[in-house]
């Protein structure tokens, strides 16, 4: 992967006011913070596993996620990737280093969360959401 050249980045920022730039950087840092803490919190909790989330899976990929949840080896791999994925994405976004690959990885991870448990009408989940969602949820945003 090649990082965008500094001038390409600058070009991308051209036309933004300083206020807008500051707001965007802050947003990137806050999103990074959120990812970073989600990862660290899971890392230090010996009881954490993604099995509970995966087993609730609905929609087209239900079978795949279920298979992962019930296979101890696959589950260990997925848990590891998820925890370290969150941590590295979070670090990247907070630091602004490797921000592009971190952004893409973040999008992929969130997309997986979304297709695993989409908030479509008719689907209910045992784990309650902290808000009220229909089609669009926090993960999608």
């Amino acid at each position: 992967m090649t990082r965008p050249s500094p001038e390409a980045e600058r070009a991308a920022f051209r036309g933004y006011t300083n206020f807008q730039k500051t707001a965007l950087v802050l947003l990137r840092i806050f999103i990074g913070w959120h990812f970073f803490y989600e990862g660290l919190a899971k890392l230090i909790n010996p009881y954490w596993t993604s099995a509970g989330y995966l087993v609730e899976s609905q929609w087209w990929f239900k079978g795949l996620f279920l298979r992962v949840a019930t296979d101890t080896t696959a589950l260990a791999v997925v848990d590891f990737l998820n925890v370290w994925g969150l941590i590295l994405i979070g670090l990247g976004l907070m630091l602004g280093m490797f921000a592009r690959p971190a952004t893409i990885a973040g999008i992929v991870l969130l997309a997986l969360y979304y297709i695993s448990a989409p908030p479509f009408a008719g689907y209910t989940y045992g784990i309650p959401a902290e808000g009220s969602y229909l089609v669009v949820n926090k993960v999608l945003i």
Partner: peptide, 13 residues
């Protein structure tokens, strides 16, 4: 520039 950007995040860390 990258280093500067990283420096900006130090207070956040």
């Amino acid at each position: 520039r990258g280093l500067l950007k990283a420096l900006v995040s130090i207070p956040f860390f």
